[in-house]
Write a protein that binds this DNA or RNA. Structure first.
Lengths: 201, 201
DNA sequence: CCTTTTATTGAACAAGCTGTTGATTATTGT
DNA sequence: ACAATAATCAACAGCTTGTTCAATAAAAGG
């Protein structure tokens, strides 16, 4: 996307910068990071940084954009038939499952970027992505006029809940498998929190 | 808490700084704000800022802490009897209602701090506060052994959903009343998103 | 109303980070 | 082996930071 990526040196340098970014965000959050910090932790010359990124914001944007487009690709590759096969309560939702697997692969960055020291705007973009996915792939055939609440608040509710559970999963060490997580989310969304908790019969 | 607040000049200065903070965060986010920006927008001397705050982080912390303790006070003042009267579907949840009213009063700051240019750590603190409130005041008597999903994920789900809806409400211009919003949230939580959307019968 | 106390102002300071540039060295690709 | 390109090193002006001091302005209290 950005560069046509060739020279091994470039790949190595970029990887080291991004690893440094992840570690430093964990330590003091993006706000407190200087380009100096990044290049020192990555053991490269400060000037080299500017050969690849305009500034630290550019670095963050590119890192985030890679994740976002990775997820977009994931979602688009889901076959329509798979998407609708959610009628069974004991089969995990394919899209959500893929999402968890992708998060697991990029765990260290996702954990920090979605954590308390992370980027609020990225969390917003993430939520927006989930909203669109929900609306397009899942909730496209719900009858708006029959709904008990405004549709935008419903979508907000479900998307935020999903992202929130993902965040909790990342922060607490990802002890459950993507499959288990997907089932948990499906149950709560279909049956409802009240029923799942045993409040309603 | 911080100062015993007396001199009119101090109150005026602090108010102007905080207003400047809100406006500037809206414009470029906390990250991009300098103390110079703040004092210029507030029309005060740069040195004056340091008479009241250690640095811009101190300013943010104090502003956030005021909101947090304001909410804490709110929650603690709810009489136990009121809290449990949520069995009716058409009566708004007192605690959530108060929360919406409080957010409405402090709308301009809440909107930006919980928005895309806001502070991820504050959103975390907020979620934590909602979690505790849920657990203490509402879900204290649910039987953990009967639940269909792990309790911590349930709490995460519900808390994130609530905060998410509040965020959407703030960002979209707060067109519904606190009472309406509370009813919407109560319905979705008790009946469940699936049922509310007409997916399950 | 007058005096004392306290807040604000304005200017100056060293220290640190930024983004850029030019010359030099090291590593790759072919 | 050699040309192309990436990384290094040093130096630069410009900006922000946090602190200090004397001077001025405003509020509090009698």
């Amino acid at each position: 996307m950005s560069d046509k990526a060739a020279d091994r040196r470039v790949i190595r340098t970029k990887r080291m910068i991004r690893d440094a970014l992840t570690e430093l965000m964990e330590e003091k959050g993006f706000e407190g990071i200087t380009v100096r910090d990044l290049t020192e932790k990555a053991s490269i010359n400060r000037g080299t940084f500017y050969l690849h990124y305009r500034d630290k914001y550019d670095l963050l944007e590119q890192s985030e954009e890679e994740i976002i487009s990775g997820i977009r690709q994931l979602v688009n590759n889901i076959k329509p038939k798979e998407a609708v096969s959610f009628t069974s309560q004991d089969e995990p939702f394919p899209i959500i499952l893929k999402l968890f697997e992708y998060f697991q692969e990029n765990a260290s960055f996702m954990k920090v970027i979605l954590g308390p020291k992370g980027d609020a705007s990225f969390q917003g973009k993430m939520k927006e992505l989930i909203k669109k996915t929900f609306f397009q792939k899942i909730a496209e055939d719900l009858k708006v006029e029959e709904m008990l609440v405004p549709v935008d608040y419903l979508i907000s509710y479900v998307s935020s809940a999903h992202l929130g559970v993902i965040q909790h999963w990342l922060q607490s060490g990802m002890e459950k498998s993507p499959r288990e997580m997907t089932l948990i989310l499906t149950k709560m969304t279909l049956y409802g929190p009240g029923h799942v908790a045993g409040l309603k019969k």
